[in-house]
Amino acid sequence: MALLPFTLPFAELEVGNHLYWQIGNLNLHGQVFLSSWILIGALLALVLVGTRKLDRDPRGVQNLLEFLWDYLRDLARDQIGEKYYREWLPFIGTLFLFIFVSNWGGALIPWKVFELPEGELGAPTADINTTVAMALLVSLAYFYAGLSKKGLRFFELYVEPTPIMLPFKIIEEFTKPLSLSFRLFGNILADELAVGVLVYLVPLIVPLPVMLLGLFTSAIQALIFATLAAFYIGEGLHEHH
């Protein structure tokens, strides 16, 4: 961005610029892995600190972890149902926690402090690879849940309530991961860009409302992704009569 004659230290915009790691002839987006490792490390550290001494009378971080667990259990139970939610709670919960930590970490940690030779650190969820990976995992989980519980009768879902629905249901299998991944990717990237542009134009105070809004949408996006994932899995497990 060399449009302006000067550049502010923390206000540069880069889009689609990646720190490439090459393993054999595979290309990896290094900045995505770096930031995701930092964030996963922080998440695991929180979990380890909180579960170090679990007690019937919770104190300190254990309260937070129990609140999270309760919240995620309610989310999974509401969407999947009392019967099967236990098996899927870790997956749904991990999706929520990873996306939430990624979104908020991307917004709250001053990543620009760390200089990379190429690209920039940021929310791992602002990279299409991450969101597509998770969306495909959700699709896999959905098929696995349905096929393992109902066998081939799982495919009856496609002709419920009438066979006319068949083409729509098949298209749906492609639109589900597409919409899941692009919703998350688009929201987080758009938020980062909006904040970036505002910081670039007016570095003080003015970006704050947008940053707060970004935090809000980030949390909502994590909730939406986890809820939809749970809903899809619940749909795959649902017994039709």
Partner: peptide
């Protein structure tokens, strides 16, 4: 580019 899908995808899936 923005929509550059590569080996990051499967690795991220494994990581998740």
């Amino acid at each position: 580019g923005l929509f550059d899908l590569d080996a990051t995808l499967p690795l991220m899936a494994v990581q998740v």
